[in-house]
Design a protein around this nucleic acid. Structure first.
Lengths: 264, 264
DNA sequence: GTACGGCGTTCGTATATACGAACAAAAACG
DNA sequence: CGTTTTTGTTCGTATATACGAACGCCGTAC
């Protein structure tokens, strides 16, 4: 994979991602200023993106919003894959057994990407909807996924000062992270205490098929419902869920396309 | 809105949409042949799309697949909007009350775009996942949404021979469609019998706020569970769900961005 | 009222991109 | 085992795109 980069293509993607980051809308001039690209250069690109419904121009507010097309084609990434439907069903069963929210996701670079969520009764807004990304070190199953790497690898991933804070409780030193990862490597469980969402505790573990860490799951529990005795129940539930998922994924390994290894 | 179209931007979108349509992957040469664009022209675009994870190249199979980025940014279209969370909760309650699947979506051109699905116990694979599009005339709530237009408008939308078949039961003539739409205009209910998915019947109705048809909902029921007496129950459930949704959406009308009117 | 700032739009030319041909490498064919 | 047909890749120039400046429009300022 050679290092190239096509200017116009990069711009098209930059525009879409910028608008995606601003749900309250952006004017053409806003986009121009943010990206440092002349309005006149942006104009034809933005027009085409609008015609194809990747952007949506609101005449009244004179602002561009995200169009439906990204959503339509983006969902082809996960829709139609029967495997993910089965995964969701397994998560849902565990959700109903515990009343707590379960997440399923993969590592994307040094972030975790949520692919599925099983959440029936929860009234809490969580930042982790499918499609969202969070720094791996800030989440329960993110730590589980990181545990496949050695201490030195982790240190090379996170040079000094690269651990950005998500909440007040987010880990701040690589040493602390590595110490926690040691626990994961020994026990199989990763813990998180309000490091990605205030007031939410998580237990995470890995999904391993053929010796390869393919994905992670985690159980998210509001702090006030998290007791020592329930923790034992949660861990057993995770063990069961993990086993079911690993069996299912092994049976449909050909459908597993989410193997975006960041270390090539 | 002037009629322009930027070639490179169109190509970038064409590439993504083409790969999205082929879950089994495409080689660079495949893309070149399908789009009628030289490989050498495609090359830098595809490289950049891969670097940005909009595409994913599988070295072993020498094929391009959809990358995660489309999914990530596409979901920003619906995530973080509290309104949709509330809509999902309402649908879920009706799903639990009936045991049948509920859909919520909007009109996108002459297609219906599914935004949410409430489906707990169903073991049937349905073609209608969120993000999917289907011809409006082939679905229950698609017909409901079309009922806001006059007979002559409908006729202009569908010139002779434009009613493509989704299943064997899909409507074939505009006259038949218009006759059914008259029933919708009178009774408020739209019916569909296996016209988009074999063996599934639907009842649909509109979601109207401030006199404007904003969205539609439908209840999908397997034929063998669809009886005359249950139909009465379904219709009452739809009336209740419709009322709840209209009240909720009216309270958060500022969040309603899905107003992509196809007739500007 | 005039003047200023914001917006999206248009135009001509300097500039970057696109294309056909030719490339090596690997797989498929006979 | 050579031959044919794949694959992705590189290069020089013909070509389409990008940019700065100027435009018209609308609302606000003064």
């Amino acid at each position: 994979m050679t290092e190239s980069s096509h200017r116009t293509t990069s711009r098209v993607l930059d525009i879409m991602e910028l608008v995606a980051k601003h749900p309250s809308g952006l004017s053409l001039a806003d986009i121009s200023r943010s990206l440092g690209i002349p309005k006149s250069s942006l104009h034809p690109l933005v027009m085409t993106l609008s015609e194809r419904k990747y952007l949506h121009y609101n005449n009244r507010e004179e602002r561009y919003y995200l169009g439906e097309s990204l959503f339509v084609y983006g969902n082809k990434y996960i829709n139609g894959i029967d495997l993910l439907e089965e995964i969701k069903a397994i998560l849902l069963a565990s959700n109903q057994a515990s009343g707590e929210t379960l997440y399923f996701g993969v590592l994307s670079g040094l972030d975790v990407l949520y692919l599925a969520k099983a959440d029936l009764h929860s009234k809490f807004r969580v930042v982790s909807d499918p499609g969202n990304k969070l720094p791996a070190y800030s989440t329960g199953y993110g730590k589980a996924l990181l545990s496949q790497f050695s201490r030195s690898q982790i240190e090379s991933f996170y040079p000094a000062g690269t651990l950005a804070s998500v909440t007040a409780n987010t880990l701040k030193s690589v040493g602390e992270l590595n110490d926690q990862l040691d626990v994961v490597r020994r026990t199989g469980f990763a813990y998180e205490k309000g490091e990605s969402t205030d007031g939410i505790q998580c237990i995470g573990t890995t999904i391993v098929v053929d010796g390869e860490v393919l994905a992670g799951i985690s159980l998210a529990v509001p702090q006030f419902r998290y007791t020592q005795e329930r923790e034992q129940f949660f861990k057993q539930l995770l063990i069961d869920t993990k086993a079911k998922l690993e069996r299912t994924i092994a049976n449909h390994k050909d459908q597993w396309i989410y193997s975006g290894r960041q270390t090539e």
